[in-house]
Nucleic acid binder design. Structure first.
Length: 427
DNA sequence: TCTGGGGTCCTAGGACCC
DNA sequence: TCTGGGGTCCTAGGACCC
């Protein structure tokens, strides 16, 4: 097996720059949903000391001083750019596994060993020309090594954006230079465990005794050590697997203290979740509702938080917005407590199955047919008559004013997904 | 009076990813 | 004042069964 990981540099910032070339070589950041924290930074922003996942209010001064350009996240744009990335990759290999919005694994069977670096450089240049996006390419005999090679390609300028770790000698050198934390699957907690064991570099990790690794890091750790040694534990998955759950969760712009507002929010989340489910042609067996207060209490504040969740099962798996909303409200009522200031809530749909495989409930075959055509009509109207595909027609219980909603003040236009936002070019 | 052990399934919670 | 959202996987422990 030989596989490449192609990963965009500072993806969300790069997407914004494609349509704002004036922002090249300048500090740019993109904020999370609800403008809460920073989730993408240009290299220039990183150089200013702006950290990943830092709450936006901590850098607001830099923005006010005009030192940093800031965008709210624009997922329709990023999703479309992601699609373009994968289309470009298909010109290079028939075996593509999209792994996240900004990275894909690419199968390299048939590429000559000696030409791997040229292949990677050609891919980078083509990607830049066809999509405007800068990417780095990591190559290796396992997915974990390809991920690690990508880290090298990004961080070490001598690789010029393409790193091939299929050579064992080069691998040893890189392993000694990289902290264990850089390995795919080693998070905060595992890194601390490793430090306690005296394991600091990837080289230390790779040389770890199998039994110790199993005890300290469980099966996950054993697998990644095999992968580092060049023995594949993960195969290339070119056929997308159906998802196992759907969740819709939000932090609130204003804390919620009244059940009426909470029920609006929960109805809205259930509606959105049901829409996602129908897009995939799936039905859910149960719905879980959760709500919680902030988990960032001030030290001086004696106030203790509250968090709870409740699951309601459907007699027959469903994707009907009305059933979802009804069940969600029942769950929300059960866990609601007066006197708290709720900061976040959400719904989760689990145990999914294809809608067409749901065996009809003996007693409501007609209801099911009616539900199917009603949902189809609603989705049709929303797709035709609303900008975001969901606001033309909705349950009244979702509320109109929605004071709890967050805003996204700095959102860029839908350059590639909305006719009204198309770029104008004069010649 | 003496009160097992092994298997499966489910769920909650944690860790990790981007 | 202000700290994201959407996923997957693994494990431990409880419930249940025979």
């Amino acid at each position: 097996m030989l596989v490449a990981l192609v990963d965009a540099n500072n993806f969300y910032v790069s997407c914004e720059r494609v349509f704002r070339p004036d922002l090249e070589r300048r500090p740019v950041i993109v904020l999370s949903n609800n403008d809460g924290c920073i989730i993408s930074r240009s290299n220039e922003a990183k150089a200013l000391g702006i950290g990943m996942a830092v709450p936006f209010f901590k850098v607001r001064d830099l923005v006010r001083q005009g030192k940093v350009t800031v965008f709210s996240s624009n997922y329709p744009l990023y999703g479309d750019m992601s699609r373009r990335m994968n289309e470009t990759l298909m010109a290079f290999s028939p075996d593509i596994e999209p792994y996240s919005i900004d990275e894909s694994f690419v199968g390299l069977t048939g590429v000559e060993r000696a030409k791997l670096i040229d292949y990677g450089q050609d891919l980078r240049a083509t990607m830049r020309r066809w999509t405007g996006l800068p990417v780095c390419v990591g190559i290796g005999p396992t997915k974990t090594l390809a991920k690690l090679a990508n880290v090298c390609a990004k961080k070490m300028p001598e690789f010029a954006g393409v790193c091939d770790l299929s050579d064992a000698a080069l691998r040893e050198r890189a392993f000694r230079a990289l902290p264990a934390r850089e390995v795919w699957g080693i998070g905060h907690s595992a890194a601390n465990t490793l430090t306690d064991l005296g394991i600091h570099t990837v080289a230390d990790l790779c040389a770890m005794d199998a039994g110790t690794a199993r005890r300290a890091l469980s099966i996950v750790g054993s697998r990644l050590i095999w992968e580092l040694r060049g023995e594949p534990c993960f195969t290339l998955e070119t056929i997308p697997q159906p998802r196992k759950g759907v969740s819709v969760t939000r932090s609130f712009g204003n804390r919620i203290t009244a059940f009426s507002a909470m029920s609006e929010a929960i109805t809205t989340f259930a509606t959105r979740a049901a829409e996602k489910l129908r897009e995939d042609g799936m039905a859910a067996s149960h719905i879980t509702v959760f709500m919680r207060t902030t988990h960032h209490p001030k030290p001086a504040d004696a106030f203790t938080g509250y968090a709870n969740s409740r699951t309601v099962s459907f007699i027959t798996p469903t994707c009907d917005t009305r059933e979802m909303a009804q069940a969600a409200l029942k769950a929300a009522e059960a866990i609601w407590k007066d006197g708290y200031r709720f900061a976040k809530a959400g719904v989760y749909l689990g145990d999914l199955m294809p809608f067409e495989r749901v065996s009809s409930d003996l007693f409501n075959v007609n209801d099911r047919e009616e539900s199917k055509s009603l949902m189809k009509a609603i989705d049709g109207i929303n797709n035709r008559h609303s900008r975001n595909g969901r606001d033309a027609i909705f349950l009244a219980a979702s509320g109109i004013r929605q004071h709890w909603r967050h805003r996204s003040d700095q959102r860029s236009p839908g350059y590639t997904t909305s006719f009204t936002d198309l770029r104008r070019v004069r010649a």
